[in-house]
């Protein structure tokens, strides 16, 4: 039986009276590219620090590839937390050699490979203090890769990268998952990016997991997602009246162009069309609006705030 890559049970961390991470249950299966989402201050970084044993946890346990030993379990992990820190007076290569020494794994070849993967092979022998923000970020990813981990834990890895850099990192992560079979746990604000990259997502809000599943699962509706439809009719006034009379249909404002946007609850777009036609209303356009992860994110996280 293959164990899960990363499991937390009841992970909790308080800072004074503020609960930064609250009874977090998280499950990352082997091979997942798991997007860890949440608004600023939701507790993503705190959760990652707890998982890596950097900060004390008040309760809960962490299991990595079935291993609960607080030290040994990290042998399978490559990590980057927030802005990566380096010894600036050392070269990039020396910093990675240091990482290998502490990882107890990795050699010159794995260092060269990691540097090449992030496109830094040409500048590897320059001091890190001369590096730009984006170069440091790439070097941080390279450092997470030395020692050939099975699980990557990355906290906002595209932070500070230019659009090309973001794309390169996204492609690198996709390739690491696909070709090298790495499991990736990545926190991010960039929902478009997560939608493209991740097979599963977890949404954190005030330290609590408010949704977890595959992107499609969440969008299809786990009781939270709703379907929205844009409607157009030559007879707009009658359409408005008819919509207001229908059960399970709520007008939520204007859609694109002259269209009306409605939210459907327990009614499919097809049924809506049928009922309108029964009332003799011509519907010239009925466009189901594909809910994006961003909409879902905003719905989930603002609902919690109010």
């Amino acid at each position: 039986m293959a164990s899960d890559a990363l499991v937390t049970r009841g992970l909790t961390r308080r800072f004074g009276s503020r609960v930064a991470v609250s009874a977090l249950d998280l499950r990352v299966r082997q091979g997942d590219v798991y997007g860890f989402l949440g608004p600023n201050g939701a507790g993503k970084t705190t959760a990652i620090r707890c998982i890596l044993g950097l900060i004390r946890r008040d309760a809960g346990e962490v299991e990595i590839f079935g291993d609960r030993h607080p030290v040994r379990q990290r042998a399978a992990v490559g990590a980057m937390v927030e802005t990566p820190a380096f010894h600036g007076w050392m070269t990039a290569r020396a910093n990675l050699e240091r990482a290998c020494a502490f990882a107890g794994a990795g050699d010159a070849a794995s260092i060269a490979e990691a540097l090449e993967r992030v496109g830094l092979q040409g500048r590897a022998d320059e001091r890190v203090s001369t590096y730009s923000l984006g170069m440091r970020q790439r070097l941080g990813i390279a450092r997470a890769l030395v020692g050939r981990p099975r699980l990557l834990v990355l906290d906002e890895p595209t932070n500070g990268l230019d659009p090309r850099g973001m794309r390169e990192v996204r492609e690198l992560l996709a390739e690491l998952a696909r070709r090298d079979g790495l499991t990736i746990f990545v926190s991010s604000h960039l929902l478009g990016e997560v939608e493209q990259l991740c097979t599963r997502v977890g949404i954190l809000e005030r330290g609590r997991m408010v949704a977890e599943g595959s992107v499609e699962e969440l969008l299809r509706g786990t009781g939270v997602a709703v379907t929205e439809v844009d409607l157009e009719s030559p007879d707009r006034d009658r359409l408005v009246a008819a919509l207001d009379a229908l059960v399970g249909v709520e007008r939520i404002g204007d859609g694109e162009g002259d269209r009306l946007r409605v939210r459907l609850d327990g009614v499919s777009p097809g049924e809506l069309n049928q009922r309108l036609v029964q009332q003799g209303i011509t519907v010239s356009a009925l466009v189901p609006m594909q809910k994006s992860l961003e909409d879902l994110f905003l719905t989930l996280t603002t609902e919690e705030l109010t």
Binding site: G53, V71, P84, A85, H87, A99, F102
Partner: peptide
């Protein structure tokens, strides 16, 4: 920089 070594299995 200490964080970067403490994420290792040591």
């Amino acid at each position: 920089t200490l964080r970067e070594v403490l994420v290792r299995p040591v």
